[in-house]
């Protein structure tokens, strides 16, 4: 079998604070294949964005990778010197954030931003770069690109800006795009457009996408495989259909059941009591045990590993020794 595009092996991320080391992401592993859309879901603070930032080398101090490896095309990228990482970022990995304005310079026309990015990473002439920019704008579905290219970000709507950001990320034909809540700030009708766009781009160029979101519907609709994160760890990982329709981990089960679904009549939603612990207050053993309806003695002592369960892998002590 060929090597996956991206491999994350036992990645941990820490914050060194005055109150000691806080482990925000703990020992997570997953792989992303070429052209695959890999989803990461979880509640606020679960460690989704940190994972994305670690991959692209954008962790901000005091956050740092404290263990594990990240490999792109079988080469380590987690320990590259700054300059090399910057180049790699430009060339192989693109990033799309929730707020398109963080990626766009309000003082430059979008054309100038696209052309500069293209020229930094290729030896295109000005005319070639402009043509490429126009091509990209058309590809991401900006109508009247010739006219729009000379406009400033504030002249675009939220959805249009996010398209421009995707165009920017595509400038260099990246192998991987990390999209962190790319549609969270957008209306459903615009969200649907952006997700369709991302899917088509993957299909057409073989670009892999890591789609970070807290919206399970977005994942169900878009991703091939998904990791459900809870308190800095992966609780369950597997094909989207399995995880959505037949989750194994008690947290994933609770999460799925708490989502209201159109057409499903119920008086009350299933509810997991309590809330995800803050990073400094994570319990021992399985971090979910205080809220888990199936917890056993062992759960507050032993940290569960990801184990095969059905068609997914779940980190739950119930599944040790092939049980239940």
């Amino acid at each position: 079998m060929s090597v996956p595009l991206l491999q994350i092996n036992n990645l941990s991320i820490e914050f060194n604070t005055r109150r000691g080391n806080l482990v925000a992401v703990e020992d997570i592993s997953f792989e992303v294949a070429e052209g695959e859309i890999f989803g990461i879901v979880g509640e606020s603070g679960a460690g989704k964005s940190l994972t994305g930032k670690a991959i692209i080398g954008l962790l901000e101090a005091p956050g740092r990778i404290s263990g594990g490896k990240i490999l792109l095309n079988n080469e380590r990228i987690d320990n590259l010197p700054y300059e090399q990482m910057r180049r790699l970022r430009g060339k192989s990995i693109g990033m799309v954030f929730q707020d398109p304005l963080t990626s766009l310079n309000p003082l430059y026309t979008i054309g100038r931003q696209l052309i500069e990015t293209i020229q930094t990473h290729t030896n295109h002439t000005a005319t070639q770069a402009k043509n490429r920019a126009l091509e990209l704008l058309r590809e991401v579905g900006i109508p009247a690109a010739e006219k729009r290219i000379d406009q400033f970000p504030h002249q675009f709507s939220g959805g249009m800006r996010q398209r421009v950001v995707i165009a920017l990320a595509l400038c260099v034909n990246p192998k991987l795009i990390i999209a962190d809540e790319p549609t969270t700030a957008l209306d459903v009708s615009i969200q649907a457009q952006i997700l369709t766009l991302l899917k088509n781009l993957c299909r057409k160029h073989g670009t892999a996408v890591i789609l970070i979101t807290h919206d399970m519907g977005v994942i169900a609709e878009t991703a091939n495989r998904v990791a459900v994160m809870y308190a800095g760890k992966i609780a369950e990982i597997g094909p989207v259909r399995e995880v959505v329709q037949n989750p194994q981990h008690p947290y994933a089960q609770g999460l799925m059941a708490s989502i209201p679904v159109i057409g499903r009549k119920m008086k009350y939603l299933a509810q997991i009591d309590g809330s995800m612990p803050r990073i400094a207050e994570r319990p021992s053993g399985c971090a979910f045990h205080p809220r888990c309806p199936h917890a056993i003695e062992l759960c507050n002592k032993q940290i569960p590993e990801l184990l095969n369960k059905g068609k997914t892998k779940a980190a739950c002590l119930l599944f040790r020794n092939g049980n239940p």
């Binding site: 959805g159 249009m160 649907a192 457009q193 399970m216 169900a220 609709e221 959505v244 329709q245």
Partner: peptide
């Protein structure tokens, strides 16, 4: 335009305009 969590695989008509 609602993401389909039931994954029925229904074909969607792309929504146009803003």
């Amino acid at each position: 335009a609602i993401p389909d969590i039931n994954m029925s695989g229904k074909e969607r008509i792309p929504v146009s305009g803003e």
